[in-house]
């Protein structure tokens, strides 16, 4: 079975290089080329492809947007992103957007053929490094800290006083700061916790175990 490949890159020299790399593979055929986003979409609509080898940045629609557009037309069409960017963020995000593989052009000459085979067969291709980073990212994003961790020490102190039922004036007197300053803090606390009233604050505090029900 021959793999029909659409190569999309705005640099002709790059397209030529890629074709040259693939020319030694009998099972691959570069049957179409595109120099910008619109051409890619036109080609994708025009006929069936086994894979699109897509540059990350091109004139017209490009990058994540272009991936989504292609996927909208042909959800099953595998996309291998070929990019100048080495950073793991690219791999993670392009895969998330719908691409099946991510290859840095630096590694193209040695990895392109195997990447195309893997992606065209329905697999995922990313570098070892990117795979590790994505796994770490998934771990790290296990859960964000609750909003009250965003409060500064002073804000948290005032937050505790407010939910304990102290007035702004009382707090100002106790902390020996101006009423205006306390009010400003109060506004920011509300903003950070995305709340609008003191009862909301009390409810929040109980829900997050900062205050206990009386």
């Amino acid at each position: 079975m021959i793999i029909d490949i659409l190569i999309a890159d705005d640099h002709a020299i790059m397209r030529d290089g890629l074709k040259q790399i693939l020319s030694s593979c009998a099972d691959m055929r570069v049957d179409g080329e595109a120099g910008n986003g619109e051409e890619v979409l036109r080609e994708v609509r025009r006929r069936e492809w086994n894979i699109v080898v897509l540059d990350m940045s091109m004139p017209g629609p490009s990058g994540l947007e272009l991936i989504k557009l292609i996927k909208a037309i042909k959800p099953a069409l595998p996309i291998l992103i070929l990019s100048m960017q080495k950073e793991n963020q690219y791999a993670a995000r392009t895969l998330k957007a719908g691409a099946s593989g991510y290859l840095c052009k630096d590694s193209a000459s040695s990895m392109l053929v195997s990447a195309i085979r893997k992606v065209a067969a329905g697999g995922i291709f990313i570098s070892q490094e990117a795979a590790e980073s994505m796994a770490m990212g998934a771990l790290n994003k296990a859960g964000n800290a609750p909003p009250h961790t965003l409060l500064s020490n002073r804000e948290f102190e005032i937050f505790e006083s407010l939910i304990a039922g102290n007035s702004v004036t009382e707090i100002a007197n106790r902390l020996n700061i101006s009423v205006k300053t306390v009010s400003t803090h109060k506004t920011r606390i509300m903003q950070k916790l995305n709340l609008t009233t003191v009862p909301d604050m009390v409810r929040y505090a109980i829900e997050h175990g900062i205050a206990k029900l009386p």
Binding site: G17, S57, A108
Partner: peptide, 21 residues
Amino acid sequence: ARELHDELGQTMTALNFDLKW
């Protein structure tokens, strides 16, 4: 940044393909 990255970078990368060949 784009010029450097895309034009210069891409051209040099393509050049690298030839060197590899």
